[in-house]
Design a protein around this nucleic acid. Sequence first.
DNA 1: CTGTGTGCAAACACTTTGCAGGTGT
DNA 2: ACACCTGCAAAGTGTTTGCACACAG
Lengths: 138, 138
Amino acid sequence: MKANDILNIHNLKRTSCREGIIEIVMIAKQALSENEIRERLAGNYDRSTFYRSFKTLEEHKILHKIIVDNQLVKYALDNTVTHKVEHAHFYCNECNAVQCMNDVPVQKYQLPDGYSDIETEVLIKGRCANCKNQENID
Amino acid sequence: MKANDILNIHNLKRTSCREGIIEIVMIAKQALSENEIRERLAGNYDRSTFYRSFKTLEEHKILHKIIVDNQLVKYALDNTVTHKVEHAHFYCNECNAVQCMNDVPVQKYQLPDGYSDIETEVLIKGRCANCKNQENID
DNA sequence: CTGTGTGCAAACACTTTGCAGGTGT
DNA sequence: ACACCTGCAAAGTGTTTGCACACAG
């Protein structure tokens, strides 16, 4: 599935900015921040354009946002595109990488009477495999 | 345990601002935002003072921060004060309340090889018991 | 052609910081 | 007495918005 196809499916105009964002995020092995995406994108788009694009792509469930500690915001492809279930996110305290743990499904939590859950966000903080390897090399 | 005792234990100066914040948060049944705390506090403290106080109280694990969607920031008493285990947080989409689900412990997630977890944050979004009752009344 | 996306500049909200003066111990 | 806390003002950062123009369908 190409970026253009995704836009078509959602009846979104195929602009180079949207196309670029989706391509970058599809290639990436990690979730990326606005800055990281902008750096990797050839065209010099305005930041407001980026924010508007993210918003649109998020509303159409093409991307999802992962937020760490109220400051770090990263984006990744959404479940509806990757066909994966609701999954946990991982944040590495050492390299600041954010990853979707597609193999770590979010567990069902038993809530007190009267509470209903619609969505559950799980963010696991720790050290990623890559940083562990780095340590061994040193 | 009084606010003053908590400050003493942590060797923090007993200023009226810190004392007030702790008292408000102890009474509250929900997590409160900076604004909510400031409204309920008699003294008119500067916002920067608030932020510095929150930071101090957080560093001493007296309070903890709960963040929803990168915009809504609320504070609650920390585990070390309440002696509760790591718990899930609940956000009500209807009334925007944030609560510590002290009876909903965070589950252990099995991570891929090489990953180690230090801390896990769970935020469940849905409708709280209070809002469900409101609906029945109408 | 028409509606929507974009760039620019300005506004906004939250948070942090430097400094001078006040307060707790 | 001294360290640390506070208030004030300013700066920093991420994000949003109004407007005129450009572009996709």
